[in-house]
Design a protein around this nucleic acid. Structure first.
Lengths: 216, 216, 216, 216
DNA sequence: TATGAATGAGCCTTCATTCAT
DNA sequence: TATGAATGAAGGCTCATTCAT
């Protein structure tokens, strides 16, 4: 069961735009450096050095350092997330999940995997979210509509059947989000986090927690 | 019952260090600007203008832009948090809380209030946490020890009495943290968040959620 | 009798804008270099070196290299020329000149002196006139209206009296202009020109030529 | 009676050097762009785009951007002008012109036509004349010797006959030059100038003016 | 202590030029 | 011959920092 494949966001960026090998090296170097040191602490000299490329080469395909940032961040808000949403809607068919647990497990695993797969981009994105208000807003909106269309309808079934607490959608959304965040954030923020992360155990714990919290 | 008073962290910084009026203006301007635009996007010219001060004045008390950042961030890791922890230990006496709910409500309200009170500093801190690994590490450690010493012993009572699930401390710490985060993050990240925030309702929801999740 | 005093245009620029000594050095260096090497062939490093100033200093008062160019060129189109025009109108009172010769001599000497006084600015201006169409247009318009208001009315008297040929104003304007240009251009364009220039002789020749050409 | 045919200078350049079609496109694009934006404001990227050629192609025949400039400007000083001078000497045979008017008309029309035909090159040349002192010097020398050998002898006849004022050659040269310039300059400098230019009327006016000025 | 002009290192970007294909 | 990706040396400009007043 796929869940978005490894490094979905960035791999897609690399392949969709027909970039020469060197240009791809530039983009990759940027992702690494932006993620490590932050966008504004990364100089074009840094980029060139990391990409083993002349400084002028950085500007052959991108007209601005900012344009590179956009190229890296765009799929986060535009392309992929909506695609995932669609895929999401397809996979989650109401009757497909007899039990709330199965539904939660699917959603939780999906988002957790997403966080693991896109650690670097998420870091770059999160940093910029402090400066550009629209970024976060856009992603949250997309995420929310993704939940509303693909996920909540399924939940409402369980609520209707009395198998789940009757909280408002926002509250449910927030709880799932924050619980997943509790496991994903350390991995995203701390280098050590990724190494010691146990995907199975984490998923199990999150699902168990949510099941209890959501119990009728 | 206060728990850390309004803007504890920054007000303390301002008062503890005997700064002239202009220097205080500099510090305040920095907090605002760093929080709004980010540390690296804030020029000393910006600071001087916002503080209504000459550019040289910025360097009268602080030798470096970075030193100002440190001055703003230091209480976050060093001074205040441990103090709070101590105060915490005092206030939370095991038998003081007959019910788990009272204990949770206290802790949740405290951290929620902290987030509200220190929105700006938290933003500056969070941004820098991406770049300086030690920052987050330090705070988490402090927070953890605060929990371990002041809070967990109390919890263990309830666990011993069979009134609370027997999860590991880390898991409990993580769940409380992330659940609070779910309500605090929007307020910290989005300008609109603070305006519409309902402290009572939020506390109630968080506590209710945790009680269910922690039920034996 | 003054006619615009030495280096009117640039001296005015220097005095009107309250610039520090170093900033004045920057402006002067720019005028020299732009005049010698051309605007686009002059680097900010060149400017700094010539002005014996740090490169950053160049940008303390002017936000752009282009802004310096504008500062140097503006008086050419805006300020001074109209002022001169006014002064012109005052000095040339129809009955003040009994003879056409006196009138021509005044105008010719004035423009010739202007060219000598502002050699550097004129060079910078002329170079830019190739690239910015509006520059030349503006100056010509100003010059033309200056002629129309201050000078032509006087000429018309002589035409009315039958002491001067009845050509259209444009043709008269053009002939005076080009004849003066014939003497001014070498001075402006060639370094040697200024040294060997004989103001009296030139004025005499121009006036004599014009008198013959304008004879009824 | 030809006088130098349309775009003599540049057409000659194009044909004399056996350039491939693309190289000719490069040269033509350069002339256009140098004339419009100036040499230093024209990038090799601009040239390549205008010539519909790859950027490398620009360097297939010319080793330097400067070399292209030279290729465009050279005929102005070297090749053509002397040729014209020779042709000039041939055509102007002292006794061919009974009247001074015919002689002046020939010369004036010739130079006026030259200006019209070579507007673009003249613009490029004039711009560079500010930066490279030798350029103007060379052309003036050539022009002068052209006048001295082909034209002045004829004039001297009229002077000898008492039909023309006895001014020095330089003064005559200067007056003819500047008078023609008065009509040519607007055409060369302003885009609108060429459209509204009336060759016949201009020639007539210039000749009439010169005849009066030169009258004994 | 406060000022603000001055500094110069370093940043982002452009562009003439080269070279493998 | 033509291409266009790649180069790297400037160039214009910013900005943290200093210092004479």
């Amino acid at each position: 069961m796929s869940v978005n494949t490894i490094s979905t966001l960035f791999t897609a960026t690399l392949q969709n735009s027909e970039l020469s090998e060197k240009q791809q090296a530039v983009l990759t170097a940027c992702l690494e450096l932006f993620s490590e040191k932050g966008f504004e602490n990364t100089s074009t000299a840094d980029i060139a050095k990391r990409a083993r490329v002349a400084e002028g080469t950085v500007y052959k395909h991108f007209r601005t350092k900012e344009e590179i940032l956009t190229a890296i961040l765009k799929p986060m808000t535009d392309t992929v997330v909506p695609e995932v949403a669609a895929e999401f809607v397809d996979q989650i068919k109401p009757d497909q999940f007899d039990h709330l647990e199965a539904l939660l497990r699917f959603v939780v695993a999906d988002r957790l995997q997403f966080a693991l797969d896109n650690r670097a981009i998420i870091r770059v994105f999160a940093q910029q979210a402090f400066v550009r208000q629209d970024l976060l807003q856009n992603v949250l909106t997309t995420l929310h509509s993704q939940f509303s269309h693909g996920f909540l309808p399924a939940l409402h079934q369980f609520q209707a059947r009395g198998e789940m607490v009757n909280w408002e959608d926002t509250r449910i959304f927030r709880l799932i989000g924050s619980t997943v965040l509790g496991y994903a954030l350390p991995v995203v923020m701390m280098p050590a986090g990724a190494a010691t992360f146990d995907f199975e155990k984490s998923t199990d714990e999150i699902v168990e927690t949510l099941l209890k919290a959501f119990s009728a």
